Computed example of a mutant assay.
Amino acid sequence: MAVIVSRRTKLQHWRAPLLVAALVPVAVPAFGQGPELRMLDQLEGGAWELRERGDGGVVQHLCLDNGRKLIQLRHPGAPCSSVVVDDKADEVTVQYTCRGRGYGRTRIRRESNGLVQIDSQGIVNGLPFSFSAEGRKVGTCGK
């Protein structure tokens, strides 16, 4: 009789993981989201002006063909790995690391597809940075 109980117990333990494994692929797509950082892809391309808040009020001009470029303003073009911390319809937060060059954490809030608020901080070339800026589309890019 001990042999029968043992076989039944082994069989029951074997079925439970299969049942769970069979249900997981069905459940995941039902709770899935759309592509990450979709809000940044909706920003208008063209000439943008970034006006930093604070004492200096530094103004930076850039030709924006992709809103994702706003994430790494202090590490432009650097190959960095990133983690999406928060991804909402009108606000994203991304933390990124550029090996040997530093890292940053950027929060971008969209007011419209041509107006955003940016807060970023981190380390670039061994020195800390922190800034808040308003980004506004001001026209088309010149050639």
Rank of each mutant, 00 (worst) to 15 (best):
residue 103 Y to R: 08
residue 40 L to A: 09
residue 107 R to F: 02
residue 29 P to D: 00
residue 75 H to L: 07
residue 11 L to K: 10
residue 133 A to I: 10
residue 53 R to Y: 08
residue 126 G to R: 07
residue 95 Q to A: 14
residue 31 F to D: 03
residue 116 V to G: 03
residue 7 R to K: 15
residue 59 V to L: 05
residue 44 E to I: 09
residue 99 R to G: 11
residue 28 V to K: 02
residue 64 L to W: 05
residue 76 P to T: 01
residue 130 S to F: 11
residue 43 L to T: 12
residue 35 P to S: 08
residue 90 D to S: 09
residue 77 G to R: 06
residue 10 K to S: 10
residue 31 F to P: 00
residue 13 H to A: 15
residue 125 N to S: 15
residue 142 G to H: 14
residue 51 R to I: 15
residue 20 V to W: 07
residue 100 G to F: 02
residue 12 Q to N: 15
residue 37 L to S: 02
residue 52 E to L: 11
residue 95 Q to N: 07
residue 122 G to F: 00
residue 52 E to V: 04
residue 26 V to Q: 03
residue 26 V to C: 06
residue 142 G to C: 09
residue 89 A to S: 14
residue 135 G to T: 09
residue 136 R to T: 12
residue 42 Q to E: 15
residue 135 G to K: 01
residue 11 L to E: 13
residue 124 V to E: 12
residue 141 C to H: 10
residue 17 P to S: 03
residue 1 M to S: 15
residue 104 G to Q: 02
residue 75 H to Y: 06
residue 130 S to C: 11
residue 122 G to T: 01
residue 127 L to K: 10
residue 108 I to G: 00
residue 115 L to N: 11
residue 98 C to K: 03
residue 8 R to P: 01
residue 41 D to Y: 02
residue 118 I to T: 04
residue 53 R to A: 13
residue 82 S to C: 03
residue 13 H to T: 12
residue 104 G to F: 02
residue 25 P to A: 01
residue 35 P to W: 01
residue 101 R to H: 11
residue 101 R to T: 12
residue 109 R to S: 11
residue 30 A to S: 08
residue 106 T to C: 05
residue 65 D to T: 11
residue 80 C to W: 01
residue 38 R to F: 05
residue 48 W to D: 04
residue 124 V to P: 06
residue 102 G to P: 08
residue 87 D to S: 10
residue 3 V to W: 07
residue 15 R to A: 15
residue 114 G to N: 08
residue 83 V to L: 10
residue 97 T to G: 05
residue 59 V to H: 02
residue 2 A to D: 15
residue 102 G to W: 02
residue 38 R to L: 12
residue 109 R to Y: 01
residue 125 N to Q: 14
residue 129 F to R: 12
residue 85 V to W: 05
residue 48 W to V: 05
residue 93 T to N: 03
residue 39 M to H: 00
residue 90 D to A: 06
residue 63 C to N: 07
residue 143 K to G: 15
residue 50 L to F: 09
residue 94 V to C: 05
residue 56 G to I: 00
residue 61 H to A: 12
residue 123 I to W: 05
residue 80 C to I: 04
residue 142 G to Y: 14
residue 64 L to Y: 05
residue 52 E to F: 08
residue 50 L to E: 09
residue 34 G to Y: 00
residue 33 Q to D: 10
residue 47 A to L: 15
residue 6 S to L: 15
residue 98 C to A: 08
residue 131 F to T: 00
residue 113 N to I: 01
residue 48 W to G: 01
residue 71 I to S: 01
residue 6 S to D: 13
residue 83 V to G: 02
